[in-house]
């Protein structure tokens, strides 16, 4: 990971990024720089453009205009194979036609490095990723036989096995109960802290963002309306502007908690 240090220090940069769907303006123009390292959470109301922005950064969607750089690589111009070693992305919905075991799934994460021919280093990375997400012992289980929480961890393990400096996760907490959501965020945090990854995730629950993220980027109507550490974003003023509903903010154990259940 040391030789990619220079790349990691450049972070993610968006300049004038815009996206239209069928003539409707859904995103941008967005100018945003995400520093390398740590966990960045994208928050916003439904349809605010969070996932669109994440998929554009992850080169799954092409912006209509503007430029996106990840670790110094222009995502539109760089070779896909090179990008796949720098940035990985996990979408929300993953339905596969093939029946895969956990190990087979995680092995796919090594494809950019090995093109399917596994080396010893690949095997080590695969087992490290499986162990990191507490899936040891489940290697030979089929992913459709796992619980929702385990399945989500298996997908994250695949993305970690890809061993990229930048990891993008689209709503990794969807469908997880309290315990599994807390576990998942703990593992995301550990991946950033122990493995030095830059993690950007779309998150629905602002309180998870407040508790785990280093930076929060708030989107509304396709634009970034605020970005900064949780203390600056998790305030009644910003949140009410983002979600257009009354929010009260409490302090608990040094972290902020938004309470919004009854207006």
């Amino acid at each position: 990971m040391s030789q990619t240090g220079a790349r990691a220090s450049r972070g993610i940069e968006l300049r004038g990024v815009e996206k239209h769907y069928a003539g409707r303006h859904v995103l941008g123009p967005i100018d945003l720089a995400i520093e390398p390292g740590g966990v960045t959470a994208l928050i916003g109301a439904n349809g605010a453009g969070k996932s669109t922005m994440l998929t554009i950064i992850g080169r799954l969607l092409e912006a209509d205009s503007g430029r996106v750089e990840v670790g110094g690589l222009d995502v539109r111009l760089a070779k896909l194979r090179e990008l796949a070693k720098v940035v990985s992305i996990l979408r929300q919905e993953n339905h596969f036609m093939a029946r895969l075991t956990v190990e087979q799934l995680v092995t796919f994460g090594r494809f950019p490095h090995s093109a399917g021919r596994l080396t010893q280093a690949d095997r080590r990375a695969i087992h490290a990723a499986i162990a990191f997400l507490d899936l040891s012992g489940f290697e030979n289980r089929f992913i459709d036989e796992l619980s929702g929480g385990q399945r989500q961890r298996a997908f994250v393990a695949m993305v970690l096995a890809q061993d990229t400096d930048y990891v993008l996760l689209d709503e990794p907490l969807t469908g997880l109960d309290m315990r599994h959501a807390v576990g998942m965020m703990g593992q995301v945090r550990a991946a950033a802290d122990a493995l030095g990854k830059t993690i950007v995730l779309v998150i629905h629950d602002v309180n998870f963002a407040a508790a785990y993220a280093d930076r929060i980027v708030a989107l509304a109507d396709g634009r970034v309306i605020a970005s900064g550490p949780p203390e600056e974003i998790i305030t009644p003023e910003v949140l009410e502007q983002v979600f257009k509903t009354p929010v009260e903010v409490l302090e608990h154990d040094g972290k902020r908690v938004a309470v919004y259940y009854r207006p």
Binding site: G58, R59, L60, K79, L80, R81, E82, L83, A84, K85, S88, I89, L90, R91, N94, H95, F96, M97, A98, F108, G109, F111, P112, G116, Q162
Partner: peptide, 14 residues
């Protein structure tokens, strides 16, 4: 094998 996983995963894996 990778293509069978769909567009997003294929592009993500380069």
């Amino acid at each position: 094998d990778v293509l069978a996983l769909g567009r997003d995963v294929s592009v993500g894996l380069g």
